[in-house]
Design a protein around this nucleic acid. Structure first.
Length: 174
DNA sequence: GTAAGACATATTG
DNA sequence: CAATATGTCTTAC
């Protein structure tokens, strides 16, 4: 099997250390801000199950800049970046592409996301897909909430606070 | 290859 | 609140 080369970048945002991994087909993993830089790297390794990681920002400076701007409360979008979704099922790809199109400040319920993806009753499956979302923020899974206005879930117990914080940030945009 | 259970849900009574 | 429908994944045979 071919060696897959992964490049990663880690950088400091207003909320902590964030980072992402790309391979030659596009974005692969995005890691939300952590307290420590090494935690970000640890998460990347865990997701990829691979040690073939090289630090290299080349060609991705604009993404780094946008992410930093995002966490300072600026309105940015990530729709121009190419994602590598090779490891996902058709259903997941559809849902993820869909969610990616939700623009800044908007929210959708799990049901609406399911409908838009062409599976009107797959609300639960959408939730499942979000759980494994490899690219939080780039794919704005934090903008997908429950129909009754509740937040739903987010990665981990602390993650839910981050979700709220992100929605908060977006609602206050100037 | 099949079957049962788990899910970041929604709808109905 | 409980029950159930729903699509996909994981795990275990």
């Amino acid at each position: 099997m071919l060696e897959n080369i992964f490049k990663y970048a880690i950088f400091l945002t207003a909320w902590g250390w964030a980072g992402f991994v790309v391979d030659r087909k596009g974005l692969r993993i995005f890691v939300l801000p952590e307290e420590r830089k090494k935690d970000v790297l640890f998460r990347m390794r865990k997701e990829l199950k691979c040690n073939n990681l090289f630090e290299d920002n080349k060609g991705w400076e604009s993404l780094i800049k946008k992410v930093k701007e995002y966490f300072t409360g600026k309105k940015v979008d990530f729709i121009d970046y190419q994602l590598n979704l090779d490891n996902y099922t058709n259903f997941q790809r559809k849902v993820l592409q869909m969610v990616k199109k939700i623009s800044y400040g908007e929210t959708r319920s799990y049901k609406e996301a399911a409908e838009a993806a062409g599976y009107p009753r797959a609300c639960r499956a959408v939730g499942n897909t979000m759980r494994y979302n490899p690219l939080p923020l780039i794919i704005p899974c934090h903008r997908v909430i429950k129909s009754d206005g509740g937040l739903g879930g987010f990665s981990g117990k602390e993650g839910i606070a981050l979700k709220r914080k992100m929605i908060d940030l977006e609602s206050k945009v100037k």
